[in-house]
Design a protein around this nucleic acid. Structure first.
Lengths: 329, 329
DNA sequence: TATCCGAATTGGATCGTTCAAGACGGCGAG
DNA sequence: CTCGCCGTCTTGAACGATCCAATTCGGATA
């Protein structure tokens, strides 16, 4: 190939000035149609692509979004992040943004990474997955007016910043109602210790659905850290204590454990997991499915809304999960 | 906050010229120590960070590496990509590079994405995970002298381009030898249809280890597409046909299926999977473990070697897997 | 016919960095 | 003493895009 194709090359080829080419790209409506077509033609013929670095230097915007990739803790639930990232990349691409990855081992380092990314790469925005109570990261970003969205509600202050989340309570409530409709009454719940917003939310959905049906949930739930072994242990405990006929779990890991515990029961105890991970699909575990692709898309929507100065867009999005029915329910 | 801190700000503050500051950053050895310290001091005091866009415009290098994130097919093996990406991000970071994500639904689009990424972002290099026979993507990149590394050997021409891979044959051979040492003789293998380099490699390791021990592998192997159900089906078939006492599988998905098929056998049939996914760890499945973090690190090494013009570095790296022993073996 | 108007186009300046070339002082050799 | 060299530092130009102000041009108006 010959020389690098710049805006000047295109301008010469279309016999117009650089500025006109720039206008065709950034403000097509102010260019006469005939001229515009000639320029567009030259762009295609020459295979011109606007140099992002030069554009960024002038405009101060990089069209880059940062997302964190975490060390895989538990591959079962880890695939959630994986799928979310994929969706994010796809939607961001369509909106003209690219996704840059970063990692950090703790909050302090993560914040110093923000500083670095903002300083050297002039990132346009951040996407955080999951936040804690009193998260120092969101505080840092908000303080500096850096655009960001979280996937996951800030449980302590819902209006603190834009977020996208999936209504976990609605998911577990729906699953519970499905089981109630199938005739179950002793429907147990295995979840996480109180205090995590997500876990409490999921438990609340189950409890509300039972109340709604006039069933007393007392004694029907157990709490533990996430994990297959933990799920199995608690399910055995439940079987011995209250002999539930069905169980809703806060994660697929817990549900897989429960599945191992109920093996051989007759009639089979129904099990419903959460996240609809590929493992659940593989073993036929019914599970509550989060619309991760859509969640990612709405994150990008929110960000572009902020970045393009459109303050009309809502800043909070709560999506509804669906129930993936399989032979365990 | 005040003005943006540029190299000129630092220069004024340290009472030197812009170029001297630039030299402190890029060629410290040509600056007198006293001056260097004064400049470094100013940099720290002011919190200066070199603007990547400006640097890129001058040097033509973006310090950005592209990696593809694929739609999760099978969450069990999908976590491999996940872990690899994490390692890549971490090591690239340490080497002063950042990882940019992209997706593409087919080869043609992927190539056009390359074109776009190179044209607009001036990417420094690509990391491809897995290649096919006669891969059009590597051909395209090689033709244009774009630096890239693949994680996975190009099976048809080992010298075609730099790669990092894990010795699958050594992994299955090691697993097979472990089983032989435990007294097993009828050690089966469940793998993928001939033709995929990875699958053939893994099968060869098992076959060689058996030959080495004087065991005839005839009839002891089965081939199928990847998946839990497929693994279960083939394992039942093997049990009925040749009653193996152990089985080595080409993936954890197949091994999980095999595990379901052998339930209740006495003495228990040993099962060893491949990839040591978190699911394997969770259910206690023995599995061959790929050093993904190291693989990612070596990919970055190879790339920086090429990018920094160091042609001394080897261009092919073959890493040894290890055997994660758990109660299924 | 002269004047004015607004749409379309033009040239110059600018963003922050690195490259290329040159300036400056001190030192040793001729 | 002069010359050239070396180490150190400075100055001007360039990368490729966008912003800004100025200019051209065709057509409408007086």
């Amino acid at each position: 190939m010959s020389e690098k194709v710049t805006i000047a090359t295109v301008a010469r080829h279309a016999r117009v000035s650089r500025q006109t080419v720039s206008n065709v790209l950034n403000a097509p409506h102010i260019v006469r149609e005939e001229t515009r077509l000639r320029v567009e033609d030259a762009i295609n013929t020459l295979g011109y692509r606007a140099n992002q670095a030069a554009r960024q230097m002038r405009t101060g915007r990089s069209r880059l979004i940062a997302a964190r990739i975490e060390p895989t803790r538990d591959g079962i639930n880890g695939s959630v992040l994986d799928r979310f990232l994929h969706g994010l990349t796809e939607t961001a691409d369509a909106a003209g943004y690219r996704v840059l990855l970063y990692t950090a081992s703790d909050d302090e380092r993560e914040i110093s990474t923000y500083d670095d990314l903002l300083g050297t790469y002039e990132l346009d925005a951040f996407v955080l997955v999951g936040t804690k109570h009193g998260d120092p990261r969101t505080a840092w970003l908000a303080e500096r007016d850096v655009p960001f969205v979280t996937f996951g509600r800030p449980w302590d202050a819902l209006d603190a910043h834009p977020w996208v989340d999936v209504d976990g309570a609605a998911g577990t409530a729906g699953a519970t109602r499905h089981l109630l409709a199938a005739g179950h009454r002793r429907i147990a719940f295995i979840g996480w210790p109180a205090g995590s917003g997500v876990g409490d939310d999921r438990r609340a959905g189950w409890r509300d659905a039972l109340h709604e049906a006039g069933v007393d949930p007392t004694g029907l739930h157990r709490e533990t850290e996430d994990g297959i072994a933990e799920g199995e242990r608690l399910m055995r405990d439940l079987l011995a204590a209250v002999a539930p006929t069905a169980v809703v779990c806060a994660s697929d890991s817990l549900a897989l454990g429960a599945l191992q515990a109920i093996r051989g029961t007759d009639p089979p105890v129904s099990v419903i997991g959460f996240d609809d991970t590929p493992v659940a699909a593989a073993v036929g575990l019914a599970s509550i499915s989060q619309p991760l692709g859509e969640a990612a898309a709405r994150c990008v929507d929110l960000l572009t809304g902020v970045l393009d100065g459109n303050h009309e867009t809502p800043t909070h999005v709560l999506l509804q999960p669906s129930l993936a029915l399989r032979h365990t329910a």
